[in-house]
Write a protein that binds this DNA or RNA. Structure first.
Length: 411
RNA sequence: GCGGACGUAGCUCAGCUGGUAGAGCGCCAGGUUGUGGUCUUGGAUGUCGUGGGUUCGAGCCCCAUCGUUCGCCCCA
């Protein structure tokens, strides 16, 4: 195996890809702050139990996709496959359940041992938002509105639609699950092999099967809305009206379910058709039982996560950097003076660069290639008059500028 | 984990029925030792993804393997 080849499903972020990636993160962070979120950063690995106990034992994420290993102390460690469990663990560990609500934004790498595809990697990156300690549907609506705001700021809201659904509360979900099992059991022979397996393990998953035969059977399957308790129904209706108040367009889609077990009530997905099979771009839901299940007090929560790589593929080219000023000494003897001028520009917050080698012509070529907006030519003749030559690369114009006026001119 | 396609220079790719590798772009240097972009002249560069096999001979055929990609599964 070639050791210089990156590990399968990982990638280097360089050049425009890096620019896109960080543009997504910075945009999301800026928007999340508008909604009152604070930045958190939790470890990329946790005790295995943080994920194993919380994500649910029916999901592949836990059963076959985790990077789990024993460290040298014999502790079972897992590279985080998602962000919510770690944030909840941190909430408990730091005693923050006393100071609720907490509104959190995070960004960072996640790890899942999956078969890589475009928009799906083994080390991938997510941005995410969590609102902990708020049980009101207003919090759900605000979280979704923030996600929508991020997508708008990234300029991709036109390619994305929001699907929402409710999974109800515990009682609603149990009743619904039973109704689904009863319905699909009647047609078990007609179900796809995958869905027959899902019938036993995770019947809700049959609802979003891609198999044509399954889709026909799903069409007249029972709908969660008919199995909601009075409370769950009130929550659901209030969420929809709040979304309208936040001016977020949405489609009700009773087939939306969630992959991870900790979700209840609200489930939503922003989807696009522009990324092939990886159509989900930002998704989340409510997880009221999670913190308690991890050993903390009962703390309701709502949140979402988005795949940065997927967002980065959807956005246009990120804004190009402004262009630096290149300082070019005319001959080695001028280098010392050039360095002084270079630093004075940087002190004045002007992006400035100097080449390490090459004759004058080479350095000018270099400045042009890296997209410098201007060059400052440091030469004996002008210097004798307390000045340098400033050449604007776009139009080739050049003029002599007094050293004292240089920074002001280039700002 | 399952099924299909693809791996040739830094990049995009060509390479005939198997006869020992090419183009464009980029890169380096000169034309121009105080002036870039355009132009022009010249130059360098490949474990043909890797390992086996068939053959007198393999970039091309066969097998395996690694990686990428499309779909399934799963999921952001």
């Amino acid at each position: 195996m070639n050791p210089l080849q990156p590990v399968r499903g990982t990638q280097d972020l360089i050049g425009e890809e890096a620019a896109r990636h960080f543009h997504v993160v910075e945009t999301a962070r800026r928007v999340a702050r508008l909604y009152g979120c604070r930045d958190w950063a939790t470890p990329v690995f946790e005790m295995t139990s943080v994920f194993a106990r919380t994500l649910g034992d029916t999901s592949d994420v836990v059963t076959k996709e985790m990077y789990t290993f024993e460290d040298r102390g014999g502790e079972s460690i897992t590279l985080r496959p998602e962000g919510t469990a770690g944030i909840c663990r941190a909430l408990i560990s730091n005693g923050l359940t006393q100071t609720l609500p907490q509104k959190v934004f995070y960004a960072g790498p996640m790890f899942r041992y999956e078969r890589p595809q475009k928009g799906r990697y083994r080390q991938f990156h997510q941005i995410g938002l969590e609102i902990l300690g708020a049980a009101e549907p207003l919090a759900d609506a605000e979280a979704i509105a923030c996600g929508w705001h991020v997508l708008r700021e990234l300029g991709i809201s036109g390619e994305v639609t929001l699907n929402i659904n409710t999974l109800g509360d515990r009682a609603s979900r149990d009743a619904y699950r039973n109704a689904l099992v009863e319905h699909f059991s009647k047609y078990e022979a007609e179900l796809s092999a995958d869905s027959r397996a899902r019938l036993a393990r995770n019947p809700l998953r049959i609802l979003d099967s891609k198999d044509a035969g399954d889709i026909r059977l799903v069409a007249d399957a029972p709908v969660i809305q008919d199995h909601l308790t009075a409370e769950a129904r009130t929550f659901w209706e209030r969420l929809k009206s709040a979304l309208a108040e936040f001016d977020v367009p949405f489609t009700e889609n009773p087939r939306i379910v969630r992959g991870l077990d900790y979700y209840n009530h609200t489930a939503f997905e922003f989807v696009t058709s522009a990324l092939g099979a990886q159509g989900t771009v930002l998704a989340g839901g409510r997880y009221d039982g999670l913190v308690e299940q991890m050993g903390g007090p009962p703390v309701p929560g709502i949140g979402w996560a988005a795949g940065i790589e997927r967002l980065a593929m959807l956005i246009g080219p990120p804004p190009a950097p402004g262009g630096a000023v290149a300082v070019i000494p005319m001959g080695d003897a001028m280098e010392a003076r050039a360095i002084g001028i270079l630093q004075s520009l940087r002190e004045a917050r002007i992006e400035a660069e100097i080449g390490y080698r090459g004759n004058f012509k080479r350095r000018l070529e270099r400045a042009n290639k890296v997209g410098a907006r201007a060059v400052v030519i440091v030469a004996e003749d002008e210097l004798a008059r307390g000045a340098v030559a400033v050449k604007t690369l776009a139009d080739g114009s050049q003029r002599e500028v007094k050293l004292a006026e240089l920074a002001a001119l280039l700002s």
